[in-house]
Computed example of a mutant assay.
Amino acid sequence: MNVLVTSISKKVPLIEKVKDAATRDKSNFKVYVGDTFADCIGRYFSDAFWKMPLLENLHIQELIKYCKEHNIKVIFPSREGELTYFSERKEYLKMNNIYVMVSELDGLNRTQDKLEFYNFLIEKKYPVIKTRLCIDEKDTGFYVVKDRFGTGSLNLHLNVTSVEAIRVAKQLRQPIFQPYIVGTEYSIDVYVDTFGKSKGAIVRERVLVVNGESQITKTIQYKELESLAMGLAEVLGLYGHVMFQIIVDSNGNPHIIECNPRFGGASTLSIEAGLDSFYWFLLEAQGESLEKYPFIRANKELTQIRYPKDLIF
């Protein structure tokens, strides 16, 4: 019983955490990785590499054939853009004894459309950041402008006036406007089990962010945010590892910014802190209940520094 991590790129820490989870299982998993780029860095840290076709060219039968030939029973998608592909085929893959850590399509759609995300959560009385399709040049205050369906920091404009916001919005395909909030930014990792229940959460303070990714991150005990994120994951109908971005302003009020329903770049810190997402999913894929595997949070706070490292062989 082997594992495939797709769109691996240079996500070496992710591979290492999947390997850690696999080696704890008596089945002696091998970790395969896939990417459309033949010379991606991640291939050198795996047990085997698959140069995958583009998803639009990957027929489901070709995927199943590869998995069966290599005894792959578990797939971990790692890129936002491939989640819909796997979610749409999740049940058919399961019929072929292949399990994918991905949410159902309804839950994905609620998170990937930022306006739908806002409308859904505001109706549920959650403190989600106000999201609009348009603003007036006479509006005061400062704004964040981003793509309605975009991911990461691409096409993100922070702390701009209404006039500037309207100008930069013309460069985006489907822009949305949100108020710029000064505060502390947190990422919260959550694991949701096969019954739709949140098993645990780890709050991470984003100390240093470069190009939208945390370079220095530290865990922090923050019960209110833990409970908020766990409830969010359940009400949104998500599954597996999911991550929320929340800003807490100077008055202590949380503002839910977005949800990434997948494993994040700095989420390896949460695994170190006790959120055993990959191992829990491997167990669930084998039909095991997680009741015997409690969430045990690390008894001290951890700091993660992400940095480049050479491999010479």
Rank of each mutant, 00 (worst) to 15 (best):
R24P: 09
E224N: 10
L269W: 02
M95A: 14
E272G: 07
N299Y: 06
N109F: 08
Y143W: 13
A21N: 14
V242A: 13
I246A: 09
V168W: 01
I246Y: 03
S214K: 09
F195T: 13
Y92C: 08
L133M: 15
E116L: 15
L282K: 13
L290Y: 03
A285M: 09
P53Q: 14
D39C: 03
T111H: 02
I8F: 09
Y99A: 05
L238M: 05
Y180G: 08
K223L: 04
D25C: 06
V144P: 01
G81K: 15
A285N: 05
F278E: 14
Y191C: 06
R24Q: 12
E104V: 00
T140M: 01
S267P: 09
N119R: 14
P254M: 13
F263S: 10
L55D: 02
I247S: 09
A48I: 04
D136E: 12
C134R: 15
P294V: 12
K17H: 14
D189K: 07
E213L: 00
I60S: 13
G274C: 01
D136N: 13
T111S: 11
Y180A: 12
C40K: 05
Y186Q: 11
Q174C: 13
I271Y: 07
K223T: 15
Q286F: 04
Y186E: 11
K125Q: 14
D139L: 07
P77I: 08
F45C: 08
E16N: 09
G264C: 11
A21L: 13
A285V: 10
K26L: 00
R148G: 14
L154H: 12
G231A: 09
L232S: 11
F117H: 09
L158N: 09
E62F: 07
M230A: 15
R204K: 11
S162D: 01
A229W: 01
L232P: 03
L121H: 03
E213W: 00
K73E: 07
N159L: 02
T36V: 12
T194L: 09
M101P: 00
M243K: 10
V5A: 15
E288D: 03
S103M: 03
